[in-house]
């Protein structure tokens, strides 16, 4: 595939460490985009801060690299002002679930037509491995040298509960599935969210003695299961695996936020304010 037209060739090679899963996410995204019928010139990709935030710097689209946690807030503004644009957000688990968690909840609640790709490496990668809300209980982090005491956080369930209409989870060991999920998320009219499990062999891997990227990918495969198979498991077994695939899909384009906003504008123009 001629992926070059989707990349800012002069900015490569990227700064991500050897074996960083973020590159596989970018790779899968580009292939999904190429298969969609979206116009590259009518697409905006927006990121926050972190290793994941660097993704937009390599994409040959109109891009915004914003402040930490605020990518969804900027994206909401872009989409409200220009509903005809395809707006994609690339965010980290720290960026999207900690400092930016509130924006995530409210964008999902509004069901605004954004595609959010969350790079989940379960750690603050860029700043050297502090725990994030997505760090599993017991894992080591520079801010949890004796093990993380926080409870595990099912972010996909939170986004589903808040009202997001397309929720999926993929992982970098299976880039074919990742691409399919991104394509489905891009096509979905409404808020779509794809949690993307990504290996960080440096800030996460070293502290947790997780081995190199190849070993981390093997572990990822062991720790995950197809969503349909996961549903057959007992409550106890379910806790031990991350389900992968489309976790929720509700097709209701009329409930999308900019559609509703347009309706109210037309109503007021036709009938005057109530």
């Amino acid at each position: 595939m001629d992926f070059e037209k989707y990349l800012r060739m002069d900015k490569l090679p990227h700064i991500w460490c050897p074996g960083c899963g973020h590159g596989t996410i970018l790779n899968s995204f580009i292939r999904a985009f190429a298969e969609s019928d979206f116009d590259q010139d009518k697409t905006v990709v927006i990121s926050g801060i972190g290793c994941s935030g660097r993704a937009t710097g390599y994409l040959n689209f109109d891009t915004l690299h914003t402040t930490h946690g605020r990518a969804i807030a900027f994206a909401t503004g872009v989409k409200m002002a220009n509903p005809e644009l395809n707006v994609i957000v690339m965010t980290g688990d720290g960026d999207g679930s900690a400092i930016g968690g509130n924006h995530l909840i409210h964008a999902a609640r509004r069901n605004i037509d954004l595609t959010v790709i969350l790079f989940n490496n379960q750690i603050y990668g860029m700043t050297g491995g502090q725990f994030s809300p997505m760090t599993p209980t017991g894992d080591l982090a520079s801010t949890a040298p004796y093990g993380n005491i926080d409870q595990n956080f099912n972010l996909a369930e939170l986004v589903a509960g808040a009202g997001g209409t397309f929720i999926a989870r993929g992982a970098t060991f299976d880039p074919r599935q990742l691409k399919k999920l991104y394509l489905a998320a891009l096509k979905h009219k409404g808020f779509s969210f794809v949690e993307s499990l990504s290996q960080c062999p440096v800030s996460y891997g070293r502290q947790n003695k997780a081995g190199d990227a190849v070993e981390m990918l093997k572990k990822q495969e062991e720790d995950t299961i197809n969503f349909k198979k996961w549903q057959q498991l007992s409550t106890e077994e379910k806790k031990l695996k991350y389900p992968l695939g489309i976790l929720k899909e509700l097709d209701n384009p009329e409930s999308e936020y900019t559609v509703r906003y347009q309706k109210i504008i037309e109503q007021v123009n036709n009938e005057g304010a109530l």
Partner: peptide
């Protein structure tokens, strides 16, 4: 290999 390479090396 092409699909999983994080660095766009292979084609």
């Amino acid at each position: 290999c092409e699909l999983i390479c994080p660095d766009f090396v292979l084609k």
